[in-house]
Lab assay of single mutants.
Amino acid sequence: LKHLCRKALRSFLTTYQVLALPIPKKMKEFLTY
């Protein structure tokens, strides 16, 4: 489930946009992995 969620997010968010999100650092590391 997490993998699918990440894949969906990565499909419409660039790494830069993910880093700009107001989310915890650990979550950013997970999303930009």
Results as ranks from 00 to 15, higher is better:
residue 13 L to M: 02
residue 5 C to G: 08
residue 22 P to F: 09
residue 33 Y to G: 13
residue 26 K to C: 10
residue 32 T to I: 08
residue 2 K to T: 08
residue 20 A to D: 11
residue 12 F to I: 09
residue 2 K to P: 01
residue 29 E to L: 03
residue 27 M to V: 11
residue 27 M to R: 00
residue 26 K to R: 13
residue 15 T to E: 07
residue 19 L to D: 11
residue 14 T to C: 04
residue 10 R to M: 09
residue 17 Q to H: 04
residue 21 L to S: 10
residue 13 L to G: 02
residue 18 V to G: 13
residue 12 F to H: 00
residue 32 T to M: 09
residue 30 F to T: 01
residue 12 F to C: 08
residue 20 A to R: 14
residue 30 F to G: 01
residue 12 F to E: 01
residue 33 Y to N: 01
residue 9 L to A: 11
residue 23 I to Q: 04
residue 12 F to T: 03
residue 30 F to W: 15
residue 8 A to F: 06
residue 26 K to A: 11
residue 12 F to D: 00
residue 13 L to C: 05
residue 23 I to R: 04
residue 22 P to C: 14
residue 2 K to D: 04
residue 2 K to C: 07
residue 10 R to E: 11
residue 24 P to L: 15
residue 3 H to E: 12
residue 3 H to T: 12
residue 15 T to F: 14
residue 24 P to S: 01
residue 16 Y to W: 14
residue 15 T to D: 07
residue 26 K to P: 07
residue 21 L to K: 11
residue 25 K to C: 04
residue 11 S to F: 15
residue 32 T to R: 13
residue 23 I to W: 11
residue 23 I to P: 04
residue 16 Y to H: 09
residue 27 M to P: 00
residue 30 F to R: 02
residue 27 M to Q: 00
residue 25 K to A: 06
residue 20 A to K: 12
residue 13 L to A: 06
residue 20 A to M: 10
residue 14 T to M: 08
residue 19 L to A: 08
residue 27 M to Y: 02
residue 21 L to A: 07
residue 10 R to P: 04
residue 28 K to L: 14
residue 18 V to E: 13
residue 33 Y to E: 13
residue 21 L to Q: 09
residue 9 L to P: 02
residue 1 L to E: 03
residue 13 L to P: 00
residue 11 S to W: 15
residue 24 P to M: 13
residue 4 L to S: 05
residue 17 Q to F: 12
residue 22 P to L: 15
residue 31 L to H: 00
residue 8 A to N: 02
residue 22 P to T: 13
residue 19 L to P: 07
residue 17 Q to D: 11
residue 13 L to V: 10
residue 30 F to P: 04
residue 3 H to I: 04
residue 25 K to R: 03
residue 12 F to V: 10
residue 20 A to G: 15
residue 23 I to H: 04
residue 2 K to M: 09
residue 32 T to P: 03
residue 17 Q to M: 13
residue 12 F to Y: 00
residue 10 R to V: 08
residue 29 E to K: 03
residue 7 K to D: 05
residue 27 M to K: 00
residue 18 V to K: 15
residue 30 F to S: 02
residue 21 L to R: 13
residue 32 T to Q: 07
residue 28 K to N: 02
residue 29 E to S: 01
residue 4 L to V: 05
residue 19 L to S: 08
residue 29 E to W: 01
residue 33 Y to C: 11
residue 25 K to D: 03
residue 9 L to C: 04
residue 19 L to E: 11
residue 15 T to L: 14
residue 3 H to Y: 02
residue 16 Y to K: 13
residue 32 T to N: 04
residue 6 R to G: 05
residue 20 A to P: 09
residue 4 L to H: 11
residue 27 M to F: 12
residue 1 L to I: 08
residue 13 L to E: 06
residue 32 T to E: 08
residue 31 L to R: 00
residue 24 P to F: 15
residue 31 L to E: 00
residue 18 V to L: 13
residue 4 L to M: 03
residue 6 R to Q: 08
residue 25 K to W: 03
residue 22 P to Q: 14
residue 32 T to A: 12
residue 17 Q to R: 09
residue 10 R to T: 09
residue 20 A to Q: 11
residue 18 V to W: 15
residue 25 K to E: 06
residue 1 L to Q: 02
residue 2 K to G: 03
residue 6 R to M: 11
residue 21 L to N: 08
residue 8 A to T: 07
residue 28 K to G: 05
residue 13 L to R: 08
residue 21 L to W: 10
residue 23 I to L: 08
residue 30 F to A: 02
residue 10 R to S: 05
residue 29 E to T: 02
residue 16 Y to E: 15
residue 4 L to A: 05
residue 25 K to N: 04
residue 7 K to F: 02
residue 14 T to A: 10
residue 6 R to P: 05
residue 16 Y to M: 15
residue 7 K to E: 10
residue 16 Y to T: 13
residue 31 L to P: 01
residue 8 A to D: 01
residue 32 T to S: 09
residue 31 L to I: 07
residue 7 K to W: 08
residue 3 H to L: 08
residue 23 I to Y: 01
residue 21 L to T: 03
residue 31 L to C: 01
residue 3 H to A: 12
residue 11 S to L: 14
residue 18 V to Q: 14
residue 6 R to L: 11
residue 27 M to G: 01
residue 17 Q to W: 14
residue 21 L to V: 00
residue 4 L to G: 03
residue 11 S to E: 03
residue 17 Q to Y: 06
residue 10 R to A: 12
residue 26 K to N: 05
residue 10 R to I: 07
residue 13 L to H: 06
residue 8 A to I: 11
residue 14 T to V: 10
residue 15 T to R: 07
residue 19 L to F: 08
residue 7 K to L: 06
residue 2 K to H: 00
residue 16 Y to L: 15
residue 28 K to W: 14
residue 23 I to A: 04
residue 15 T to G: 06
residue 2 K to I: 12
residue 24 P to G: 03
residue 25 K to G: 02
residue 4 L to C: 05
residue 5 C to M: 12
residue 3 H to Q: 11
